[in-house]
């Protein structure tokens, strides 16, 4: 086989490892796929009554795309934890001592995590539709919205790998796991940023999570006040393309650097 052939074969072996984890511990992975559904139901009933949407639309019209974006963010934790555990337990070292492709370790992880996200997203779309959420601008635009969400997940993958390789042990991850929440709240996931106090709104609208949530709403034809009232909001699709690419451009090389530095 060629070098590329081996890289692909090795990547698939690493991906299969995660799929086998799912098979061996189905409860754990199924719970993780339904966790976003839980968030959707909790925040939907918690905040739904207090929300005033134009034309008496359901709050789910705004919330569902927000939870989509939030699910991308929460995926970060899975990546981080898996990477740190492998490093801590010496599994990464064993991979590095094998004649396998070193890129495959990361590629296998990426494929597995994207698959995981795809399933979580599918479960969430089903629930959203059942709760009355709809896309109104046709399937191609809806698919484009899902594409942008997955692009964000792809960018967060590299942040996850970078942090996962950087921290000393799994315990240090707790800090990051806690910090994920304010990042989620300081975005347009739950409310349009234009309805926030000015200074909070400014921070929030530049949050890459907001870009993804607002862009998804734009493409689905779901309501978001910031689409018409702010510059970032009206350019959300552009932002949702640029910000993940920027994050990837920064964190992919950083992760590769960290990986190489394991030998220093």
């Amino acid at each position: 086989m060629t070098t590329l052939g081996w890289t692909l074969a090795d990547s698939w072996t690493i991906t299969r490892r995660t799929l086998t984890h799912w098979r061996n511990q189905p409860g754990l992975i199924i719970f993780s796929w339904f966790f976003p559904v839980l968030m959707l139901l909790v925040f939907g009933s918690l905040l739904g009554g207090a929300m005033d949407l134009p034309d008496g639309q359901s709050y789910y019209e705004l919330l569902v795309p927000g939870i989509f974006a939030l699910t991308m963010l929460f995926g970060l934790e899975g990546t981080m934890t898996a990477v740190t555990q492998d490093k801590e337990k010496g599994v990464t070292d064993r991979f590095r001592s094998l004649p396998m492709s070193s890129a495959a370790v990361v590629m296998g992880r990426a494929i597995a995590d994207m698959l995981d996200t795809l399933i979580a997203l599918a479960v969430l779309v089903g629930t959203g539709l059942a709760l009355g959420w709809r896309w109104h601008e046709g399937l191609p635009k809806a698919l484009a919205a899902f594409g942008l969400l997955l692009l964000l997940r792809f960018a967060l993958l590299w942040i996850g790998i970078y942090i996962g390789l950087s921290v000393r042990n799994a315990q240090s991850l707790t800090v990051v796991q806690v910090l994920v929440w304010p990042i989620g709240f300081l975005s347009s996931a739950f409310v349009a940023t234009s309805t926030m106090p000015a200074w909070l709104g400014t921070i929030s609208q530049w949050n890459p999570l907001s870009a993804a949530a607002t862009a998804a709403r734009t493409l689905f034809g779901n309501p978001d006040a910031s689409i018409t009232t702010t510059w970032v909001g009206s350019h959300s699709v552009l932002m949702a393309i640029i910000s993940p690419l920027l994050l990837t451009a920064v964190f992919l090389p950083l992760s590769a650097h960290r990986y190489r530095n394991l030998s220093r």
Partner: peptide
């Protein structure tokens, strides 16, 4: 290595076949 570097979620056989595949 100093710490047993095997996948704890996989079975013994699954570990060995995975490392076999990674040894090409």
């Amino acid at each position: 290595g100093q710490y047993a570097a095997i996948d704890e979620v996989l079975t013994g056989r699954q570990n060995l076949t995975m490392f076999g595949r990674l040894n090409h």
